[in-house]
Each structure stands twice: as structure tokens, then as C-alpha cells.
């Protein structure tokens, strides 16, 4: 049995103190490097198709933004609101994780902790997977990746993403057309016209109309007005997909 006094004398030795200091510094540096390295970030975040599938799994397809050049910010914008209840829990989990890093110094067994950290990071994700939407999302992701021909991964990724985006765009377009048509209450002034109005509609990311401009007049003010009213009454429009911020709304039967 070691008496407290013997321990104190051992810790007090200069060599041991230096060794401990160097060891702590080395581990701390290693941990910091791991946390901020791109590799760590890549491994701990979902690949792009996950983001696409999240949106596709939602009833409202208009919130997706997969074709945007820097998709990561878009992912954050969109995925976070999609987790209304679990979000506080899943956000709270990763935050305590860095704390052990700060506690490394006083602890006698610092080494295994930083190494275990990358492995423990993905923990919040399995939690969110338990939700049906994400289950569906992962299933789709797996399906997409398994169907992808081997050897052409990057291009196929993009093509798949674009395909999904195009489908979302088509769904968004259909939805907006339906909403505006439902609010186009008086079409009488537009009947029997050879020209129809086109309104340019500017949107915020939320779908709020920030401005309208008559891009092409029908030649009848009341026809143009009825179309503008239809747009204004159709608010709120669904959030547009990707970077879509301008709609050219063409009124009238072109058949």
C-alpha cells in the first residue's frame, strides 16, 4: 500500500512533471487537429445524397436546395427546421462531447479519450435515424447508392441529385400553378384574348412574395389586374427549391 506521502513525492519529481506536461500538450494538439480537420468533418457529416433524400421524404418538396453550389449551408438551413422536437436533444448531445477534451489534463488516463471521440461523434445520428422520415431517407439513400453503377460515382451522384432536384422543381411548379389558379377568381377580362399577362414574381426563401412586375401586358388592364390579384392572394407560396427566387407566371390557356 502506497502512502499519500509517497505519492506526493513522486508527483513532485521534476522529470515526471515535464513528461506529463509534454504528454498533455501532445494529446491536446492531436485532439484539436482531429476536431478541425476536413477529414473529421467529412466523416462525421452525412454525404450530400442524404440531404437530398431528407427533402424528398418531406411532404413539401419545395424546401430542398440540392443544386446550390455550396450545399452545406443549405443543408443546415433546411435540415434543422425539420427536427422540431428531437433537435434540442441531438444538439445537446454533441456539445457536451468537447468538454471531456478540456478535462483531459487533470485526468490520469488522457490517451484513449481523444481517439474515442471521432467514433463517439456519430452517436447523435443513429438517434435521429429512429424517426420514420430519416429511416425512409436512409433507405432511399441506400437504394440510390446501391443502384449507382460502380466506377462513376461522382458523376452519378450529381446526376442523381439533379434528377431529384428536377422532380422537386416539377412538384413545386405544379403546386404553385394549382395555388395561383385557385386564386385567379375573375378570368372574364382575359377571355378571348390573343395575348396573356406574364407576371414576374420575386420570392424570399420562405416563399413570401417580395415584389411583382408585369413582364408582359395582355393589353387589358383588368386582365392584368386579375392575374396580379391571383398571385397576391396565393400567398404564402411554398418555399422555392434551391436558388429559385424568380417566377415568371404565365397566365392564360396557350393550348
Amino acid at each position: 500500500m502506497i502512502s499519500p506521502g509517497a505519492g506526493d513525492s513522486l508527483l513532485a519529481s521534476v522529470a515526471y512533471r515535464r513528461l506529463l506536461a509534454w504528454s498533455c500538450a501532445a494529446h491536446l494538439a492531436g485532439g484539436v487537429a482531429l476536431v478541425f480537420s476536413d477529414q473529421f468533418r467529412f466523416r462525421s457529416s452525412l454525404p450530400d445524397p442524404v440531404y437530398v433524400s431528407v427533402v424528398a421524404a418531406e411532404p413539401r418538396p419545395e424546401a430542398a436546395a440540392p443544386a446550390a453550389p455550396p450545399p452545406r449551408q443549405e443543408v443546415d438551413e433546411i435540415v434543422i427546421p425539420r427536427r422540431p422536437r428531437p433537435k434540442p436533444a441531438s444538439q445537446a448531445k454533441p456539445r457536451p462531447k468537447p468538454r471531456p477534451r478540456a478535462e483531459l489534463a487533470p485526468r490520469p488516463e488522457p490517451k484513449p479519450k481523444p481517439r474515442a471521440e471521432p467514433a463517439s461523434r456519430p452517436e447523435p445520428k443513429p438517434k435521429t435515424q429512429s424517426r420514420p422520415a430519416l429511416d425512409d431517407l436512409m433507405a432511399r439513400l441506400q437504394k440510390t447508392t446501391s443502384e449507382r453503377p460502380s466506377g462513376v460515382k461522382p458523376g452519378a451522384d450529381r446526376d442523381g441529385r439533379r434528377g431529384v432536384f428536377n422532380r422537386q422543381l416539377a412538384a413545386y411548379r405544379k403546386r404553385v400553378e394549382s395555388i395561383v389558379a385557385r386564386n385567379w377568381d375573375d378570368t372574364s377580362a382575359c377571355m378571348a384574348r390573343s395575348k396573356f399577362p406574364v407576371w414576374e414574381v420575386r420570392l424570399a426563401a420562405s416563399g413570401r412574395v417580395t415584389g411583382v412586375r408585369l413582364a408582359r401586358a395582355s393589353g387589358d388592364r383588368y386582365c392584368d389586374d386579375s392575374a396580379e390579384r391571383a398571385i397576391m392572394k396565393a400567398q404564402p407560396l411554398p418555399p422555392p427549391p434551391g436558388k429559385v427566387r424568380v417566377l415568371d407566371v404565365n397566365f392564360g390557356d396557350r393550348g
Binding site: 450529381r158 391571383a230 429559385v244
Partner: peptide, 23 residues
């Protein structure tokens, strides 16, 4: 494969008929 900036910013919407409900 990257979409050009702004390439997807504007889309066409076709509204062929109205509700005919009146104001």
C-alpha cells in the same frame, strides 16, 4: 457538373385557368 451560379434562379409557371368564382 456544377450548376452555374443563378442557372436555376428563374422558373416558368403556367396558370391556364382560374376558379371563375368571382371576387
Amino acid at each position: 457538373g456544377a450548376p452555374a451560379a443563378g442557372a436555376q434562379e428563374r422558373i416558368q409557371i403556367e396558370v391556364e385557368s382560374g376558379s371563375g368564382r368571382g371576387y
